[in-house]
C-alpha cells in the first residue's frame, strides 16, 4: 500500500465493551468484550475486508468507527480528525462523509416511504436549502448510477426485489458522495445470482467515485473477491491482516488457515484436507486467557495461555497475532476424493 496520502480511517486500540446485567449497587459486573483492542487503517480508495464468524465483533467495529456506538477505549481518526469523543452535533459534518449499507434490504428501508424520499433523505438532512427540482435530479442520478430506472422513485420498497432494494440502500448511502462506506454483510441476504450483481455494483461505484470501503462479511470468497486487503477477526481481536493475495496464499495464523479449510469450494473434483475446528467460538463475556483461539487451535502450546499474543508484522504489510513462527500453514490442501464417492466421469487432468 502506498504511504503518501493520509488514511481515510485510522483505528487505534479500539475497545467496545457492553455491560450486561447489574451487580450490587447497580454497578455492572460482567461485560461483553465485543471489540477488544483493534487497530487498522484504511487508505483512500481502498477496500478493506473484515471477516469473522458470528460473535467475532466485526459488526461492532463497523458501527463504532461510524460512531453509531461510542467506543469504550481507543481512538478513531477519520480523514485525520479524531472523532472518538465528538458529540452528536460535532459529528454532524462528518456524518455526510461516512455512510452505511445494511445487510437486510427488507428491514433497512421504511416500507411507508416512497423510494425518492428514502434515497433523498440524506439531502433533506444535510442540504435542507436545496431546491426541490435539484433534489429530484440528484435522486434520479443516484438511482441511475445503481442501475435502477430513473422513475423508480415513485414506487415503494415492496415493489422491488431483494437485489433491487439493496441497490436502493446503496443509492441512499452514495447520495452525499461519502468518503467512506461501511458495508455490513451487504450481499449475504441475497440470492447467489444477485450477490454477484451487487458485488459488481459496489466495485463499480468505488472505481467511479474513488470510494473507500470497509467491507464486513463472513463469506471468505466474497471478501476475497472485493477487497484489496483483508483483516480476520476472532473474539473481538484482529488475528491477521494482509493484502488479499498474500492472505489467501500464505496465511500465517492458524485461525485463518482453519477458516479457509472450512469454506466449501464449488468444485466437486477438489476434495479438501479439512481442518475441522472442534467446539464453538468461546463466550466474549469470559474469553480464554492468552490467545483467545488456543482452545480450538491444533497448534496450541502451554505458552499460548500465558499472554495475549500481540499483532506484529511478519512480512511487509502482513501482521499476525500468534506466538508460533515455526508453523507451515497452507490455505488448503487437496486430497483425493473420498473413495466411497468416485467421480461419475473421469477427473480432467490438471
Amino acid at each position: 500500500m502506498t504511504a503518501s496520502p493520509p488514511p481515510v480511517l485510522e483505528v487505534d486500540g479500539l475497545v467496545k465493551h457492553f455491560p450486561i446485567g447489574s451487580g450490587l449497587f447497580g454497578r455492572s459486573r460482567d461485560k461483553v468484550r465485543a471489540v477488544d483492542g483493534v487497530s487498522f487503517s484504511v487508505a483512500k480508495g481502498e477496500v478493506l475486508g473484515l471477516v469473522g464468524e458470528s460473535g467475532s465483533g466485526k459488526t461492532t467495529v463497523g458501527r463504532t468507527v461510524l460512531r453509531l456506538d461510542t467506543p469504550t477505549d481507543g481512538a478513531i481518526r477519520f480523514l485525520g480528525n479524531d472523532i472518538t469523543h465528538l458529540t452528536r452535533s460535532q459529528l454532524r459534518p462528518f456524518r455526510r462523509q461516512m455512510q452505511l449499507v445494511f445487510q437486510d434490504p427488507f428491514s433497512s428501508l421504511n416500507p411507508r416511504m416512497r423510494v425518492d424520499r428514502i434515497v433523498g433523505a440524506p439531502l433533506a438532512i444535510h442540504e435542507p436549502g436545496m431546491a426541490a427540482a435539484e433534489r429530484t435530479q440528484r435522486v434520479e442520478d443516484a438511482l441511475a448510477m445503481v442501475g435502477l430506472p430513473r422513475n423508480s422513485g415513485e414506487r415503494f420498497p415492496h415493489e422491488f426485489s431483494g437485489g433491487q432494494r439493496q441497490r436502493i440502500g446503496i443509492a441512499r448511502a452514495l447520495m452525499l458522495r461519502p468518503e467512506l462506506l461501511v458495508a455490513d454483510e451487504p450481499v449475504s441476504a441475497l440470492d447467489v445470482s444477485i450477490q454477484a450483481q451487487v458485488v459488481k455494483l459496489l466495485l463499480d461505484v468505488r472505481a467511479k467515485l474513488g470510494l473507500t470501503i470497509l467491507f464486513i462479511a463472513h463469506d471468505l470468497a466474497v471478501v476475497g473477491h472485493v477487497s484489496d486487503r483483508v483483516a480476520v477477526m476472532y473474539l473481538g481481536k484482529l488475528v491477521e491482516i494482509a493484502d488479499t493475495r498474500t492472505l489467501f496464499r500464505d496465511p500465517r495464523h492458524p485461525y485463518t488457515e482453519a477458516l479457509f479449510s472450512a469454506a466449501p469450494v464449488p468444485d466437486p473434483t477438489i476434495r479438501r484436507q479439512r481442518i475441522v475446528l472442534t467446539g464453538d467460538i468461546p463466550s466474549p463475556i469470559n474469553p480464554p486467557s492468552g490467545c483467545a483461539f488456543r482452545t480450538r487451535c491444533r497448534y496450541a502450546l502451554p505458552a499460548c495461555a500465558a499472554e495475549v499474543p500481540p499483532l506484529r508484522e511478519v512480512a511487509k504489510g502482513h501482521l499476525k497475532a500468534c506466538l508460533r513462527d515455526d508453523l507451515e500453514l497452507v490455505p488448503w490442501q487437496d486430497a483425493p476424493r473420498d473413495p466411497a464417492r468416485p467421480p461419475a466421469v473421469a477427473t480432467p487432468a490438471p
Binding site: 426485489s161 454477484a196 459488481k200 471468505l220 470468497a221 472485493v226 464449488p266 490455505p331 488448503w332
Partner: peptide, 27 residues
C-alpha cells in the same frame, strides 16, 4: 452456467475483479 460463474472462488481471490459474472435481472 451463469450460477456457477457468479460464485466467487476462494482459490482465485486477489485476482482480477472483472472475473465475476453476474446473471442480469431477477428471479
Amino acid at each position: 452456467q451463469g450460477l456457477l460463474r457468479s460464485v466467487p472462488r476462494l482459490d482465485m481471490a486477489g485476482g482480477v475483479h472483472e472475473e465475476l459474472h453476474a446473471i442480469p435481472g431477477n428471479v
